[in-house]
Simulated assay, not measured.
Amino acid sequence: MSFNGSAGGSQSSRMAYEFGRTHVVRPKGQHQATIVWLHGLGDKGSSWSQLLESLPLPNVRTDMDFLSLIKWICPTAPTRPVSLFGGFPCTAWFDAQDISDDVSDDMQGLDASAAHVANLLLTEPADIKIGVGGFSMGAATALYSATCHVSRQYGNGQPYLINLSTIIGLSGWLPCSRTLRNRMEASNETTRRAASLPILLCHGTGDDVVAYKHGQKSACALNSAGFQNIMFRKYEGLGHYTIPEEMDEVCRWLSVTLGLQGS
Results as ranks from 00 to 15, higher is better:
3 F>V: 13
6 S>C: 12
10 S>A: 10
10 S>C: 15
13 S>M: 15
13 S>T: 15
15 M>Q: 14
16 A>G: 13
19 F>E: 03
24 V>K: 09
33 A>G: 07
35 I>H: 13
36 V>I: 12
41 L>A: 09
42 G>R: 06
44 K>C: 13
50 Q>D: 15
51 L>H: 13
53 E>D: 14
53 E>P: 07
57 L>A: 13
61 R>G: 05
63 D>Y: 15
65 D>N: 14
67 L>F: 01
70 I>R: 08
76 T>A: 08
77 A>R: 00
78 P>E: 04
80 R>A: 03
81 P>D: 04
84 L>M: 09
84 L>E: 02
87 G>Q: 02
88 F>L: 14
88 F>R: 11
94 F>Q: 12
94 F>C: 11
96 A>V: 03
97 Q>P: 05
99 I>V: 13
101 D>L: 08
102 D>F: 15
105 D>W: 05
109 G>H: 03
110 L>T: 06
111 D>C: 14
111 D>W: 04
115 A>D: 09
117 V>R: 10
122 L>H: 11
126 A>C: 03
127 D>T: 08
129 K>E: 01
136 S>I: 03
139 A>Q: 10
142 A>S: 12
143 L>Y: 00
143 L>W: 00
147 T>S: 15
147 T>N: 09
147 T>P: 07
153 Q>I: 07
154 Y>H: 11
157 G>N: 04
158 Q>F: 03
158 Q>V: 11
159 P>Y: 05
179 T>K: 07
180 L>D: 00
180 L>V: 00
181 R>G: 04
181 R>N: 06
181 R>A: 11
182 N>Y: 08
183 R>K: 01
187 S>E: 04
188 N>W: 14
193 R>C: 01
193 R>F: 05
194 A>L: 01
197 L>A: 02
198 P>T: 04
198 P>M: 09
203 H>T: 01
208 D>T: 09
213 K>L: 04
214 H>C: 02
216 Q>C: 10
219 A>I: 01
220 C>E: 11
224 S>V: 15
228 Q>E: 15
231 M>P: 02
233 R>Q: 06
246 E>A: 01
247 M>K: 05
249 E>T: 10
249 E>N: 11
254 L>Q: 02
254 L>G: 00
255 S>I: 03
256 V>C: 13
258 L>H: 04
259 G>A: 01
259 G>V: 02
